[in-house]
Simulated scan of single mutants.
Amino acid sequence: MTRRFKSYSIAEFQAFINTLSIRRKITHLQIHHTWKPRKTDYRGEATIASMWQYHTNTRGWRDIGQHFTVSPDGLIWDGRSLELDPAGISGHNKGGIMFEMIGNFDQGEETLEGKQLDAIIAAVRVLLQKFNLTEKDIVFHREYSPKSCPGTGITKQWFLNEVQSRKIQELSDQSYVNAPQWKKSAIDWLYKERLISSEDWKKQIESSLPLWAEALVLRRIFEKIKLGRTPF
């Protein structure tokens, strides 16, 4: 018997996640690469089904190990039930959601780029927001294992920078792009403090009060509070 698997575009994945209600407490996101199969081995659903067969028939697991698989064409494939911990990092699976990226991303091998990079970063951002997590809750397999996973060609800092920087890239209002640096700094600060999201920005596009002005005021209030001063 072979399981069927469903693929999502980035937009479909976001819509799917936003409808979920999960009883299990989510504490972190795990990032892995397959190593084998490589990107060049990818054959759509057949590749996901092959991993499922290996995990269940050879390794004896109850299901495929990962919750989601990100393929070279930018699709996000479903997997293990989100109500189950992953089979990803021995001794560190409780509370995790596991992403498996198809490819060998060790140095000198394949590169995480293009649609696949867009998909993993977008999916991670959706889950960070859904479960009120931060970039500190993103875990690379190699942090708890002698393996190189998710590949020596991917540094943790580069990956986190991609997650953070793409928040700004998603802003649909060009006023951010064209704004002077002091306005951008105020907006960036709110993102860093997790006080706004790209959705918040979109709601403010038609507002008579620019978001940068609100950000600047809030920033000054927080700075005064941290110094023990009355903000008003």
Rank of each mutant, 00 (worst) to 15 (best):
M1L: 12
T2P: 07
R4N: 12
R4V: 08
F5S: 04
S7R: 07
S9H: 01
F13D: 01
A15Q: 15
S21W: 12
R23E: 14
R23F: 11
H28D: 09
Q30G: 08
I31Q: 00
H32R: 06
T34S: 15
K36P: 03
R38P: 00
K39I: 08
T40M: 02
E45M: 09
T47L: 04
I48R: 00
Y54E: 10
T56D: 10
N57C: 07
T58Y: 08
D63A: 09
I64L: 15
H67P: 08
S71V: 05
S71Y: 07
S71E: 09
S71Q: 05
P72V: 01
P72R: 05
D73Y: 00
D73P: 05
L75I: 05
L75N: 11
L75F: 09
R80Q: 04
E83R: 04
L84M: 15
D85I: 02
P86M: 05
G95L: 13
E100S: 08
E100L: 14
I102P: 00
G103K: 05
G103N: 09
D106I: 00
E110N: 01
L112V: 02
E113S: 11
E113D: 10
L117D: 00
I120Y: 00
L127G: 03
K130S: 05
T134H: 10
T134E: 13
T134M: 05
T134C: 03
E135F: 03
F140S: 01
H141L: 02
S145C: 10
S145L: 08
S145P: 06
P150V: 10
G151A: 14
T152R: 07
K156F: 13
K156L: 10
V163T: 02
Q164F: 14
S165H: 07
R166Q: 15
Q169E: 15
D173Y: 04
Q174L: 14
Q174Y: 11
S175K: 14
N178R: 11
A179C: 09
A179K: 07
W182T: 04
S185W: 11
A186V: 04
I187E: 12
Y191G: 01
K192M: 08
E193I: 03
K202M: 12
Q204H: 09
Q204V: 06
I205N: 11
P210S: 10
A213G: 04
L216V: 04
V217M: 12
R219F: 08
F222S: 02
F222V: 02
E223A: 13
T230M: 14
